[in-house]
Nucleic acid binder design. Structure first.
Lengths: 221, 221, 221, 221
DNA sequence: TATGAATGAGAATTCATTCAT
DNA sequence: TATGAATGAATTCTCATTCAT
């Protein structure tokens, strides 16, 4: 059997055990994020999360009812984080085509820099989004970007720059899909195509391709 | 804890215990495919695979060394199956744009009808393609479609129909991505967007969108 | 876990599968001897015995009722073998002190050349000689050497060479003990004393010591 | 198959479940000692060790990584115990021949009263002293008796009482051997010689014989 | 708030043994 | 006589979770 303990590279430095509830909660959450990202929901181990966070296993149960709810909390935090980032995009200030390009670039960069997000979503989907559904009432997980994207598409259409009839949801899903699949399945794809898809060159080629693909479609001829 | 035994809908009908090695192996493989697809590698249970196949748990170890190698065998079988289907596509007989459209449609349909394939790949990627790498030497997992796609793109470029400079690997990945992400993450997306993405209408809208997107990009103006 | 299959160095060369009952039985017996000697009764694996003998596992059960009886058969064979060797010693032809010396040397050499015998006996004793008891009625396991040794001691006493009052059983046990313990516990002792007890030099020193010890006791001053 | 549960005579009385780590560890260790002594390493069952100690099986793994390490801990404890006893012998205070005699008697008595020690060593040797080697760095397993024995032999030689040229290691091994073999193989020997070697009379005869043998050799007559 | 000790239910894997041919 | 297929009962070890302090 593989000993995954050696993967605990990011074990947090032993901190002075101040009795700081907020802090402990956050530390657990971030340790759990790593663990779930690396091993999925079933593969994650409460023990390792405790090790990672340099906290007692029992404390995890103090803050989170069980593994499932911990996963859910992690998932919510991940969503909140990406929503935070999206907010800062300020797409409405840009020209339609520049806005679309920026959205593609943002998506790519965000996934690239936050690969846990991808694995997390995969896990969530394996479990039929059970955890997401439960979170939905409590927190606004849905992207405000959809409306914004709709406005951008409309603005482009009116100006004659964009083709009409584009469903913002479909486009949004497609933009996510192009980055997501490439990065999430990168290791499989690299083996299958016999080339490293994560070299800087490959990465920039992918980004170009995606921009061309999306803009080639959106732009009226 | 959830009792997943109730999900054993597809328990195979108790067959006459023929002492047929090939058969037993195949039955185990197909039961394992279901199980791994439903729960991922870590979440899958050997016990349930035995139940599903109406065979003795011990027999699984008789044919497959351990869970990991069983997973690998399942993965290989899944790849072989999709490669088989691809072979029947006969894209070379079509006009370039028709060929591209057919490839998009095929991808969509295949994933739709073989959802296990998606979950399986997700699992494989969670484990960093370890299993795929190990299989790669033994079996041709890589798609022969890449070369064919290259030829199609070239033919279209020469005839002036297609734009030039398209990397077939990038395009192939993108075509897969568009279907894969939508279907694999469907449950999460459905919750987030507050609409069922799997109704017939949604499905056909998605297929149209993908065709437009890919062809809008490939076709010169 | 340790993979002991690599220890199957002495796997017999694949023989033409003649339907030779006697031969098969013998092959199994010798494979089992090795296996039991290496791993003890509990540690031995029927599977490995089958591998070792290049025969089907089922055949083992054809010839021997179960693991226990196989062990017993192995034990009996080992006893018969040492009794065979003892018979050839021809101690009665020697002078008393020469005979004693020869017995010490024989014991040492036999154990040295047949280390399986030691481990086998250890196993038998761990199981409280259950297997030996069962064999006893059927076969003459007891050494005819005891009587002979009694005669030798008496001859030596009469001639004034040996001291009197020596119980041949005690002496026999002691002679065996001195070689047995050294060889059977050699690995532990080597570690404890920090010196390799199996070098040629160590071996000859041990033999000298044992001869001196036994003769020093037996001989009248 | 034999039901060994009935051999659990020494199941410890259900103690008040004190949450005492040291205590639990010790209880497990002593239960494991019994189990390993009775069945050897391979034959021992973790389940039975749990039963014996009236503790949860899981706790065994909490304190000891696995069966192998548990065995190692047991072995170390056994060595420490005998070394403790040896320390109390105070041989240096005795006359040379009295000291030798006392060492023989001590060895006999210790093995007689701690038969687990013998089986344990047998097991350790079956496994090629793997466990002892691993312990050796950490703990002083080697007997301080060797040096002392050397001094005693020298003292006896100088006084003209003992013969010269005796290697203390050889003598020590021989003294151990004489008791060890008799006791460890007692059941086999009893069957073979057709007499019970463990009656009080047999025992005292054995002890006499060993003393005569060793002293007969050591003393310059 | 924090933690080490303890546990029951499981989960992968092993093993001797039997079945069917 | 020989063998590959099949199995039930263990057996080691794991995991989420709770107890007691």
């Amino acid at each position: 059997m593989v000993n995954y303990s050696i993967m605990l590279t990011s074990r947090l430095p032993a901190q002075p055990k101040t009795r700081d509830a907020e802090r402990s909660r956050a530390v657990i959450l971030s340790a759990a994020l790593e663990e779930f990202a690396l091993f999925g929901l079933s593969g994650a181990r409460i023990d390792r999360i405790a090790e990672r966070s340099n906290l007692n296993k029992r404390l995890i149960y103090y803050y989170f009812a069980d593994k499932d709810q911990l996963f859910q909390a992690v998932l919510e935090a991940a969503y909140e984080k990406i929503r935070e980032s999206e907010k800062k995009l300020n797409l409405q200030a840009l020209q339609p085509s520049a806005a679309i390009r920026k959205l593609v670039e943002f998506t790519w960069t965000y996934y690239l820099e936050n690969p846990e997000f991808l694995t997390l979503l995969n896990s969530a989907n394996l479990h039929k989004a059970r955890h997401i559904e439960e979170s939905f009432n409590a927190r606004a997980l849905n992207s405000p970007l959809i409306e914004l994207l709709g406005e951008i598409l409309e603005k482009g259409r009116v100006s004659g720059e964009f083709r009409g009839g584009i469903d913002p949801v479909q486009l949004y899903v497609s933009i996510a899909a192009l980055s997501y699949f490439y990065l999430s399945n990168n290791s499989t794809l690299s083996v299958i195509f016999g080339r490293d898809l994560m070299t800087p060159k490959s990465q920039s080629e992918r980004l170009s391709h995606m921009c061309e693909l999306i803009l080639g479609y959106v732009l009226r001829n």
